[in-house]
Design a protein around this nucleic acid. Structure first.
Lengths: 353, 353
DNA sequence: GTGAAAGCGCTAACAT
DNA sequence: ATGTTAGCGCTTTCAC
């Protein structure tokens, strides 16, 4: 039987006040936990609150206060484990401080990113956690500066002259990947990535290359970088292998690259680690259960979220001082997709389904 | 050089009014697109708006209006592709109608679910899209009813006597899976799932069983259902195989079950589809690139989100009538993880890494 | 056509 | 210790 939907009017602070026989101001004080209220009156307020099911309207409350207790979060996407976990963390941390998190996805578009930011500014959010599509030099960060917004930049950033930044220590993690691969004896390695996320991809590439060259000056490092999207990368990778290149290991600088690499291996009938080794930046749940399990760099989501919120609230509460750039250490999980080179010969021909 | 963060006061409607030499009421009308304003005055308002960078404060605006243009979305989690895509879709649809989506994760807890809902009620959201942890009979839906909230239930629901519901047609999809597996010759199939999400899991199980039995009355269908969490399921599955059970195919009723099944196969050294076939409810990007690719039921996220929002806005705008229960058709993607049984003998001993 | 007045639900000074 | 007053930024009658 269709119950009628629709909001019956909720009790307001005045309803409570008249039920309790006090003024709205007193109710407000009781709700705020001010102790200077006569305990008898406080009790009457509590009773009325109970009776009427009264709850403070956070919007009306914020309206009067100086700052709104809303934090905005802008992520490039919500579909990956990484950003999903990030939003979950941020939400929970905001909530702990009595703030509401409003999250939005820029869907990898800088234009949308700025639009969302403008809307968050309209909402007069207390602060923003921005995971920019590209890096700290994009239009969104500029908008935040121009409008005096409070914010923290995370993930695809290194450091900024106006905002605190928190990201994974890509360079250090990549250096460790280099040590592992070189230690396994690899001397011809392909690195794949998406170029425009400059900040972090550059750090990952440089960190890898520097350490690899130090450990084995003769190592050959090929790089396949696409500009914006993942499909061009797939095409470039296909060309690369079609030319007859036969690296013994691939290091993918981002999650979708790992998927692309895997699917290209499949097309050619190569198996890890016998035909080729694979390590990816960014871990995912499925990587442990595939055969073979895929080695991956695990980003410390909780630390990034935690330090981002810490920094943000410090600024919201008026904290001064130069911006701080944090790099959080990653874990590198070496799984079965990595082994010594040349365990099995490459099959020279593609043989996919 | 640390630029000072912090909001300089934004222009209010009164600032615009005085700059334009009109009243706030007129500015409000111009912003709302009312046409009865003298075009000369309208122009002066536009100029002032431009000059001051004025934008309506949506919260203050909602304060005065009857209903707030905020939609709440509550998902069990944000970490999976399915719910990530769902939130992205919902956000975009809400935005198209001039609403803001506030999303929150119940983290698979009914207690938290109700808490979040209470907070959304405090926010006086216009409506809620709730993907309940369990099913339509949980405390959250009850809270919504008790408080006269407007809402739509999605995903782990079948139908409700108070709210519109939208979910994937689990039964039909499972029937198709049954046809595929039986058609391949399987006569001993294991179905695994998580029991407490009763609504959909039950539909998936029943849909599968009914069709399987119709096609081959002698088929043996084993069921391993865990109550709440995924780890107990893993344990039960391990016991099941340890007893010497050797089904030729496994149908997992939910994503994490597919991962668990895969990892158990690995422990035992079984490969798909030669040693055992596998189909999972819920698709994921990685399933196409693993070796072998995993067959999966693809839920129509866009349709679910679209119809949910349609139904929700219809109710928000006062639509009456009995609740509608929609079932959206799924796609079943048969991939390499499914083949005829007995292509290769099971290796009787575990041989994992 | 336009503006004055009255709030939405709340809180913060300031009186009392 | 409590109530009164004055708004936060906006919209909406309702006179003019």
């Amino acid at each position: 039987m269709a119950r009628r939907q629709g909001q019956q009017r909720r009790a307001s602070i005045h309803d409570v006040a008249s039920h309790a026989g006090v003024s709205a101001a007193t109710v407000s004080k009781v709700m705020a936990g001010v102790t200077t209220v006569k305990s008898e009156n406080a009790q009457r307020v509590f009773d009325a609150v109970e009776l009427l099911g009264y709850r403070v309207d956070p919007l009306a409350s914020d309206m009067r206060r100086a700052k709104r207790r809303i934090i905005g979060a802008i992520m490039p996407e919500f579909e990956s484990e990484f950003f999903g976990q990030m939003v979950t963390q941020l939400e929970s941390l905001a909530e702990q401080r009595g703030y509401t998190l409003v999250a939005a996805s820029s869907r990898e578009s800088e234009a949308r990113e700025t639009e969302i930011l403008a809307r968050m500014h309209d909402w007069r959010v207390a602060g923003v956690v921005l995971a920019p599509v590209r890096n700290e030099h994009g239009p969104a960060a500029a908008f935040m500066k121009a409008n005096g917004m409070t914010g923290v930049l995370i993930d695809r950033v290194l450091s900024d002259d106006a905002f605190d930044t928190v990201s994974a220590d890509s360079a250090a993690a990549s250096a460790e990947v280099a040590r592992e691969l070189l230690g396994n004896g690899h001397r011809h390695i392909l690195v794949i990535g998406l170029g425009e996320q400059a900040a972090t991809v550059r750090a990952r590439l440089d960190g890898f290359r520097a350490t690899a060259l130090k450990l084995a000056p003769g190592v050959r490092i090929d790089v396949v970088l696409a500009e914006t999207d993942v499909e061009p990368l797939r095409a470039q990778l296909r060309d690369y292998f079609a030319k007859g290149e036969r690296p013994t290991a691939v290091y993918s600088l981002f999650l979708k690259g790992t998927l692309v690499a895997l699917s290209e291996f499949r097309r050619r009938g190569w198996h890890c680690p016998n035909d080729i080794s694979l390590v990816g930046f960014d871990d995912a749940e499925w990587m442990q259960v595939t055969w073979p399990a895929i080695a991956a760099v695990v980003q410390p989501v909780r630390q990034i979220a935690g330090h981002a919120m810490e920094a943000l609230f410090a600024r919201i509460e008026g904290g001064e001082g130069p911006p701080i750039a944090r790099l959080e250490p990653c874990k590198v999980l070496m799984r079965e997709s990595v082994g010594p080179p040349g365990n099995g010969p490459h099959s020279g021909t593609a043989r996919g389904t």
